[in-house]
């Protein structure tokens, strides 16, 4: 217990010096976060879980998005998400993956920011809303490009899987946010 408090005070003293080298530190952290998000989305692509219905995934990269939303602010979060999507898209995907990912990320970050500002939910609730918003954003792009409303049916399944995946990622994010002080 006393050991934990010691660590706590050390971390607090580090975070209190944050303002002096803010820009450099933020730039470095943003770069590290982009790299981390890229690795997580690559790892996730190695484990296919979307079999019957497309779009089911854990959303590991959202872990980085949520942590950075709480710790680095909205501006850096947008840079991290867009950077990750474009770099991963160029390296492992194609133009269409980039468009779908950007649509999902845009709606997701917007919703998570608004939900976070209300302070009603913890990181878990923010993550659940973000996951469902992400799926919704991608469904909307599919509805527009394919000009077919019936795709909305997928949303029911994706809402369930999104809520579950969002909860898991949210719990993990909550633990990280609580324990990491930068």
């Amino acid at each position: 217990m006393s050991k934990n408090q010691n660590i706590e005070t050390t971390k607090n003293s580090i975070s209190s010096t944050k303002h002096s080298g803010k820009t450099n530190k933020e730039i470095a952290l943003t770069g590290v976060f982009i790299a981390l998000a890229m690795i997580l989305s690559y790892l996730e692509s190695l484990v296919p879980i979307g079999f019957a219905v497309p779009g089911i995934k854990l959303g590991l990269a959202n872990l980085v998005t949520i942590v950075s939303l709480y710790k680095l602010g909205i501006k850096n979060t947008i840079i991290i998400s867009v950077g990750r999507i474009i770099l991963s898209g160029i390296l492992f995907g194609n133009m269409m993956i980039i468009i779908y990912s950007l649509a999902g990320a845009f709606v997701s970050i917007l919703v998570m920011l608004l939900v976070m500002k209300t302070k009603i939910f913890s990181a878990t609730g923010v993550s659940i809303c973000g996951a469902i918003a992400h799926n919704f954003g991608q469904i909307i792009v599919a509805v527009i490009t394919l000009e077919n409303m019936n795709i909305m049916y997928y949303m029911i399944v994706l809402a369930i899987t999104g809520a579950i995946a969002g909860t898991l990622i949210g719990l993990l994010s909550g633990m990280i946010i609580r324990n990491i002080h930068m």
């Binding site: 878990t124 633990m175 609580r178």
Partner: peptide, 27 residues
């Protein structure tokens, strides 16, 4: 930073259950 310390709140569970119930009813 302190007020963000809760990993999960009651409101999160309400949200999760509400989404699952609505989705299952629709399904």
């Amino acid at each position: 930073k302190q007020e963000e310390s809760a990993i999960i709140k009651k409101s999160d569970i309400v949200l999760l259950v509400a989404i699952l119930v609505i989705a299952l009813i629709t399904f």
